[in-house]
Write a protein that binds this DNA or RNA. Structure first.
Length: 508
RNA sequence: GGCUCCGUAGCUCAAUUGGCAGAGCAGUUGACUCUUAAUCAAUUGGUUGCAGGUUCGAGUCCUGCCGGAGUCACCA
């Protein structure tokens, strides 16, 4: 089925396309001959103007971009084109380009078309640096209309926008349209790239090696989540999309790398929310000869650096809060935190049943029969929204932390912390368990505790145990949810605003 | 998955108690050779998310479905 215009606007544009073709103008030529970006053209003129204010030198330019505003005024046309660097105004006069070409400008140009303009830089009477066009080439004809958004610069420099493209569903389904007309959306993704690059540089400078590990895994593990399943046809093998990188990255420490990290996609087959997308970007790093204290130091230093890069300061505003990333961050144990906020000392309730009863008494809704570690996690989740400033929450119950080493002072707890900022969990880290026999026992205990119910136990990764038996150095490991960091740094309240193509249900 | 709210022109939104589906922008035609939310005049454009129902009459009320948002649940 070939495309048909679906409304009169598209029909008009299609007619224009045909008229251009009839006039022997290719609306989609192969070559572009740009000499300046729009901002380079403006800068070049301003420089010439600075040198000779009365008679600036001629600056011949060829610029290219998408028409974002146009205004035909009799025999003179003004329009703005936009490229990746910004916008510049074009002025096209009948006398400058002749009747035939002006006819096309008049009749066949639309908002959204890409054009190439050759001319000389000038400043209009209204004071705007502008390309006075001598030749115009159409680079790409747009058949569908972009949403029309008009902008006016107010005296204080802020930009007032008239018209919007704000339908959330359409913005996500047609992100290209969203990006094309919403500069502030593009800015979020520029910052996102900067955040990731800052993390990579930071870790590279610390001597970490960036690696890539399998996304398709025969056995999934390293986190608590349901996986997506797929199938390799030739091998007749079911494969899982990874839910974490953990077990592969630690194999690399066995292999002799002292420090590795990976930034990539995890997939979890669970509900979506303002902070959950089925696929999301994770940073995981592992460092030999280190522990969770080392991981806290790295986290503080790295995110402070990211904040600095993004905002030029240690503080970032998020949902009306000023969040200060300057180290050192608050450190508090899980137990103390829960005591402070909920007035429950879980050490007073040594069994799951006793703790569950006490939680009910305090008015918390708890599903019955949960293991004690899960109950403590539920208590922590009740406090989570109150943790706005960066906080390390330390020392978790062992039964929800199968990959972390026990505290030397308390074998029921492990050297683990989670990072909370802006009321969200941002990351998770441990002093990594490197005792292969303890690890095997933990796997078996997990399998026993979570055998029942639909959350079938994670399969035991025998090869991972095999690797550990060859000797794994003492190490610290850290995972950080990159999307959530981007939310914090760009003051976005939903993960969908920091993921270019968030998952949406298929439309009919 | 539960509950609440939302879906009207390409975009942003109106539409009284159930009573002729409208506006601005964009588009089209005309005027205008320094405009910039250009302006002025005229004008096109609708399966009101989909399918049923109630009614003389449904954008509006009812049922189901589709999609989205919020919230709760789920997320060892």
């Amino acid at each position: 089925m070939t495309w048909q215009p679906s409304n009169s606007v598209e029909q008009d544009r299609y007619d224009k396309l045909q008229r251009l073709r009839a006039a022997d103008i290719n609306p989609y030529p192969n070559r572009v001959h740009r000499t300046h970006t729009t901002q380079e053209a403006i800068a070049a003129y301003e420089q010439a103007e600075a040198q000779h204010p009365d008679a600036p030198a001629d600056i011949p330019v060829t610029v290219s971009g998408r028409i974002m505003r146009q205004n035909l005024k009799g025999k003179i046309y003004f329009g703005h084109i936009e490229d990746g660097s910004g916008r510049v105004q074009l002025m096209i006069r009948f006398n400058d380009i002749g009747e035939a070409m002006f006819g096309h400008v008049r009749q066949n140009l639309d908002l959204g078309d890409f054009v190439q303009a050759t001319g000389t830089m000038m400043r209009t009477k209204m004071g705007e640096v502008t390309v006075r066009v001598e030749a115009l080439v159409i680079l790409s004809k747009a058949l569908s209309p972009l949403p029309v958004i008009k902008e006016r610069k107010l005296e204080d420099g802020t930009i007032e926008r008239y018209g919007e493209f704000s339908d959330v569903e359409e913005r996500y389904r047609q992100r290209y349209t969203d990006l094309a007309v919403n500069q502030h959306v593009r800015d979020v993704f520029r910052i996102r790239a900067k955040i990731i690059r800052t993390m990579q540089r930071f870790l590279d400078d610390k001597g970490f090696l960036e690696v890539e590990t399998p996304i398709l895994q025969p056995i999934y593990g390293g986190a608590a989540a349901r996986p997506f399943v797929t199938h390799h046809n030739q091998l007749h093998q079911d494969l899982f999309l990874r839910i974490s990188f953990e077990l592969y990255l630690k194999r690399l420490l066995v292999g002799g790398f002292d420090g590795v990290y990976e930034i990539g996609r995890d997939f979890r087959n669970e509900g979506v929310s303002y902070k959950h997308n089925p696929e999301f970007t994770m940073l995981e790093l592992y460092q030999a000869y280190a522990d969770y204290h080392t991981m806290m130091a790295i986290t503080e230093e790295m995110l402070a650096k990211v904040a600095q890069q993004v905002s030029g300061a240690m503080t970032v505003s998020f949902k009306g809060h000023e969040i200060n990333f300057g180290p050192p961050w608050r450190r508090v144990t899980v137990r103390d935190l829960i005591k402070q906020h909920l007035e429950i000392d879980y050490n007073d309730y040594p069994t799951a049943a006793a703790l569950e009863e006490e939680m009910r008494k305090s008015g918390l809704e708890v599903s019955s029969g949960l293991p004690r570690g899960k109950l403590i996690e539920t208590l922590l989740e009740a406090v989570e929204p109150k943790l706005i400033q960066p906080t390390f929450v330390l020392d978790y119950p062992i039964d929800i932390s199968p990959f972390a080493k026990k505290l030397e002072s308390d074998p029921t707890h492990v050297e683990r912390f989670e990072i909370f900022i802006g009321g969200m969990e941002i990351g998770n880290a441990f002093t990594e368990l490197n005792d292969p026999l303890d690890q095997e026992a933990r796997f078996l205990e997990m399998a026993r505790l979570y055998r029942s119910g639909e959350d079938d136990a994670t399969p035991i990764d025998e090869d991972y145990l095999n690797a550990m038996r060859y000797g794994m150095p003492p190490c610290g490991g850290l995972g950080i949810g990159v999307d959530r960091v981007v939310m914090l740094m760009t003051n976005q309240t939903t993960i969908r605003e920091v993921v270019l193509f968030p998952h949406l249900r298929a439309r009919e």
